[in-house]
Each structure stands twice: as C-alpha cells, then as structure tokens.
Amino acid sequence: MSLLDGRRSVLFVHAHPDDETISTGALIAEYVARGSRVFLLTCSRGERGEVVAGPLTALAGTNELARERDRELERATGILGITERFWLGEAPARVDGLEARRYRDSGMVWLRPGLAGPADDAASDALSVAPLTEVAADIAALIVRLRPDLVISYDDGGGYGHPDHVRAHDATLAACEATGTSFAEVLEAPRADGEWFDLPGHLGVVTDALRAHASQLTVHGTEIVHSGGQREPIVTSTGLRLHPHTSPA
C-alpha cells in the first residue's frame, strides 16, 4: 500500500517555520485532499533566519522576528489545510511534569552551495545542542497524544545539512522507535527503496502558502527567491522512504 493511502492522521515534524511549505507543502496538501488529518510540529521559531529586503528587514535579529514567523506559520498552515500545529517544548509536545521550554534556532553556515553546516555560535538552548534524549522525549509525548498513522520528517542529512534539520530527523526517528510508530523520510530525488509522487495539482495552494512566509522568501512565478538571493523551483514532486527501524506503515 502506498504511503499516501488510508492515513487517518499524519504528523509532520519540521525544524523552522516555512520548512513545512518549502519541502512538503504539496505532500501536505495531498494528504489533506485524501481526507487525512494533518498535524504539524515545528521545533524552533526560526529566530536566526535572515529577512528579505523590504518592510520586514528591521525585524532581523529581534524578538519580533519570532513573533512574525509565528504569524506567518499560522497563515501558511491555514492555507495548506493543516488540522492543528504545535511548538516543540510546549504541551502537549513536552514531557509531562517538565516546565515548558523553548528550543531556539541554531543558525547555520554554508559549507558550499547547497550544503549547510553548524554555526559556531549556537546558543546553549538551541535545538541542535539540546540533549537528543530530551528532544526525542518531547516529540514522543506528542506522538502518544496524537497517535498518528505516520510521522514524516527529514532524511538523516537534514535535506541540505542544516543542524536543526539533522537534529529533528534524529530525534523524530528515536521518538518513533520508542513509541512503535511508522516514520517516513522526505526524499529529494527518486530512489529504489522509496516512493515518488508528482503532485502538480497542488502548485496553487503551495504558492499561496509560500507567500505567507514573506519575511523569508518571495515568489517569482514558479520559483522561490530566498533572503540571500538563492533561487529554487517551487517543489510539487517529492518522495517518501519508510525507515526500516520503525514499524511497518
């Protein structure tokens, strides 16, 4: 059976606001169209994100940027049809009995075009340096609460190497193993042990959701232009690989 078929509910785990739309917006829209309840767990508020030139530029490096990215995420998830969204570290995505905490954006550096690596100034409360066991336990708390049929997040390279993406993958895999939940990794290219989906019918809704993330990107036709000027096509084709260390989907 396809990983798209018969899913009562699906949980997506992403590192920052806008990741859900950039890499999996079409996939989310497809699950919604098939009648699945789609939940989103966002691990950090993207406090260290660069800001596109324009009226929001002054928010860079301020606390207001996190609040703006929260508002942007609210708009984008509404457009995509997501049932409910959560912040990692806040109930119900927090171990019972522990005070709420905030996992901060770790930042990154470009090692070469298309490949990111850890920044050397990540804060002590950043996601990438938080104990893996704590991050995984908080994700597991939400999984136990929601009991999704499938959890989806990055591959083990975090898509393009961002340290927060890598930590989200590692912690999500550990949480799925602990709870006996199926875990699927997002693929950026077809491979023999995965499924590939071409979903051009969702281009319109993904484009609208991308426009909601106005502090981070602009949309030019069928391309995204990031704050640093990098261009990439809007993604409507993507794949999933069921991780062999988790239960069958």
Rank of each mutant, 00 (worst) to 15 (best):
M108A: 13
E64W: 06
A209M: 05
I143W: 07
D193I: 05
D18V: 03
V52E: 03
L27W: 02
R8F: 08
T62W: 06
L88M: 13
A119Y: 00
H16E: 08
V205K: 12
R8H: 15
G228M: 06
F183D: 06
R45V: 01
R37V: 00
A76F: 02
L11R: 07
A214L: 05
P17S: 02
P244V: 13
P200W: 08
G161D: 09
S106N: 04
A168M: 11
D149W: 03
G89S: 01
D155P: 09
L3Y: 11
S9W: 05
G78F: 07
L80V: 03
L3P: 04
D19F: 05
P233A: 12
L41Y: 04
T133N: 09
H220T: 12
T179D: 06
D18Q: 07
D164Y: 07
H213E: 02
R147A: 15
T24W: 02
F12N: 01
D121N: 15
H169R: 07
T83R: 13
S237N: 05
A123G: 13
P92H: 11
R241C: 12
Y154L: 09
V129Q: 06
R34A: 11
I143A: 09
G61V: 02
A141Y: 09
I22N: 01
T207H: 06
F197G: 00
S237R: 15
L203C: 03
G61F: 08
S128T: 09
G54D: 04
L27V: 02
G114A: 10
A126L: 08
A140L: 11
D156A: 14
E185M: 15
R102P: 00
S124G: 07
L4S: 04
A91S: 15
P118W: 11
R67E: 14
A122R: 14
E223D: 14
A76L: 00
D170E: 15
E195H: 05
L217G: 00
D19G: 01
E188K: 06
L3C: 13
F183V: 06
A184M: 10
I82H: 11
A29D: 02
S106M: 01
V38K: 11
A53P: 00
Q230L: 09
H226E: 14
D121C: 04
G35I: 11
L3F: 13
A184E: 12
L187G: 01
W196P: 03
R94S: 07
A123H: 06
V13N: 09
A189D: 11
R147C: 10
S247Y: 05
V38R: 12
Y154N: 08
L59C: 07
L111S: 04
M1H: 13
H162E: 02
T207S: 15
V166Q: 12
G89F: 03
Q230C: 00
A100H: 10
V166F: 07
V109C: 01
H202E: 08
V32Q: 12
T21L: 07
G159P: 05
D5Y: 12
C176P: 04
P131V: 09
G61M: 09
